[in-house]
Write a protein that binds this DNA or RNA. Structure first.
Length: 265
DNA sequence: GTAAATGTTCGGGC
DNA sequence: AGCCCGAACATTTA
């Protein structure tokens, strides 16, 4: 589920717990989401601390508990966050359950591709600080984007858009949306894009990210009805402009849909 | 019963 | 040494 805007939406789902102290933490010890970390240790460190603030950057989230405990959350493919009220019984996929005074913060993830980690220190952890600027921020200039494209000339542009080192927060549906709106075929080699196409790609990337944040990121409401978004999920989607059947193939290792007329090869 | 799912990482081949 | 692709991860749903 979660790309840039969905992540922003889920981040806010824990807001109801802001300012409350952690009474108890339940973790599923053997779940994959704690890989690389000690789940029991995370539970121990969070207990007694107050939930103070949260951040989202692309597909990553960071939650601060007390002065120096930083909980990193990645939602993977099927993760989500929600707040429950007491009494609450954790379900099978509720791998992290943070019980506060009045509310319960829950991380659920069926497929367990998500990840939870904890860092202790006065400042946000290094992995967090190293995340580049997502496209909706002003630091994502045309020049920055063009330089990134130039580093991956051999990849299909679809695959390049999925690289989190350059297009922070862009995932499978956003990449298809961006390429459709920009009129660029997903299989085109990144290095083959002409300057006017790069300009269009840059403008559209920022627009799609910003608009998605205004709609999905705000309250999970649908993006504009004219978007590709509404068509690409179904096997028999059609181009919003031409009403013709969409093309479908695996590109960059992921299912990709596009319009043969809007996006000529 | 089989295929596919909005993500990332690792290993092998070139 | 890069670079690129496919497989693997775990589970549900169509």
């Amino acid at each position: 589920m979660p790309e840039l805007a969905e992540v922003e939406y889920y981040r806010k789902q824990w807001d109801a717990g802001l300012g409350q102290r952690v009474a108890r933490v339940q973790v599923h010890g053997k779940t994959r989401v704690f890989r690389g970390s000690d789940a029991a240790k995370i539970a121990r460190h969070l207990t007694g601390r107050r939930y103070l603030e949260s951040f989202a950057r692309g597909k990553q989230m960071l939650f601060r508990f007390g002065a120096d405990a930083w909980l990193g959350v990645h939602l993977g493919m099927t993760g989500n966050l929600r707040t429950e009220s007491l009494p609450f019984a954790a379900g099978k996929a509720d791998h992290l359950v943070i019980q506060l005074r009045k509310n319960v913060l829950v991380f659920r993830d069926w497929r367990q591709f998500g990840r939870i980690r904890l860092d202790i220190g006065p400042d946000a952890p290094e992995w967090w600080r190293n995340i580049p600027s997502p496209p909706h921020e002003s630091a994502f200039t045309r020049k920055v984007m063009a330089a990134f494209l130039a580093r991956h000339p051999g990849l299909p542009i679809k695959a390049t858009l999925l690289l989190q080192s350059g297009f922070v927060g862009v995932g499978n549906w956003m990449a298809d949306e961006i390429l459709w709106q920009a009129g660029i075929a997903p299989a085109r080699k990144t290095g083959a894009l002409q300057p006017p196409e790069i300009s269009r790609l840059w403008r559209v990337t920022r627009f799609v990210c910003r608009k998605a944040l205004e709609t999905i990121g705000e309250d999970f409401c649908d993006p504009p009805s004219t978007w590709f978004f509404h068509q690409r999920w179904s096997r028999k989607g059609t181009c919003p402009k031409h009403k013709i059947a969409l093309q479908c193939a695996t590109i960059g290792g992921r299912t990709t849909a596009w319009c043969g007329r809007c996006q000529p090869t």
